[in-house]
């Protein structure tokens, strides 16, 4: 570096824009810095796909919970302590040998945050948003998911009012697994519907 150390290199313009907006909103009393930190901490570290995995494993092992989940998912997951922050409804859609569910948000990236955390990059991308609807079979194939020809695919387009979580099929061979072991099998991608849940080592 040719320059001396009498200044600090400013961050990128986009980061300065965020700092500008944040400092103005804090000054106006519209945002509380401690509340802001708490929100970021929550979504960075505490809310993630493990919440959804717990919901799925419970549904696989507890028929009453499963029935309640399919009837009113928002209420059922709230019982586990996961509540929607944006006032959205959650619907759980169950995979069966005849029907495979796939979730997308064609317009932006509506996503069941409370049970899956924040969406992965590919979920937010235009190719996924478009192709999940127009050619779901080839999207699934790119994720390594090959369904029998007899399985129908249903695509669910999320909105600001309605989010979807896929209840995958419990894999064959996991009959003896307890709830905790089952949780570890459930992936984020399976709960979006681009993959199925598989046994370890058979991925």
């Amino acid at each position: 570096m040719s320059h001396d150390h009498d200044h600090t290199d400013p961050p990128a313009d986009i980061a300065l824009r965020v700092k500008a907006l944040e400092s103005l909103l804090v000054e106006k009393g519209l945002v509380n810095p401690a509340a802001l930190d708490a929100i970021i901490e929550t979504y960075e570290h505490r809310v993630g796909p493990r919440n959804g995995a717990r919901v799925v494993a419970r549904a696989w092992t507890d028929p009453e919970f499963k029935a309640a989940l399919l009837e009113d998912a928002s209420a059922a997951v709230a019982e586990l302590g996961y509540e929607g922050r944006q006032g959205e409804h959650l619907q759980v859609v169950e995979n069966t040998p005849e029907l495979h569910n796939l979730v997308v948000c064609t317009l932006c990236s509506c996503y069941p945050w409370t049970v899956l955390g924040l969406p992965p990059v590919w979920y937010k991308s235009a190719p996924y948003r478009a192709r999940a609807v127009s050619e779901p079979h080839s999207v699934l194939a790119e994720f390594g998911t090959h369904l029998p020809a007899s399985t129908r695919i249903q695509v669910w387009d999320s909105t600001s009012e309605m989010r979807y979580l896929v209840l995958p099929m419990r894999p064959a061979g996991a009959e003896d697994f307890d709830e905790e072991a089952l949780q570890s099998l459930v992936t984020r991608n399976a709960m979006i519907g681009v993959e199925q849940v598989s046994m370890p080592g058979r991925g």
Partner: peptide, 17 residues
């Protein structure tokens, strides 16, 4: 979930507002 700190700040501001 965030690639850079400003992404987290922008996200958090939106949720806070």
């Amino acid at each position: 979930v965030f690639r850079e700190p400003w992404e987290a700040q922008a996200f958090g501001l939106t949720v806070a507002l």
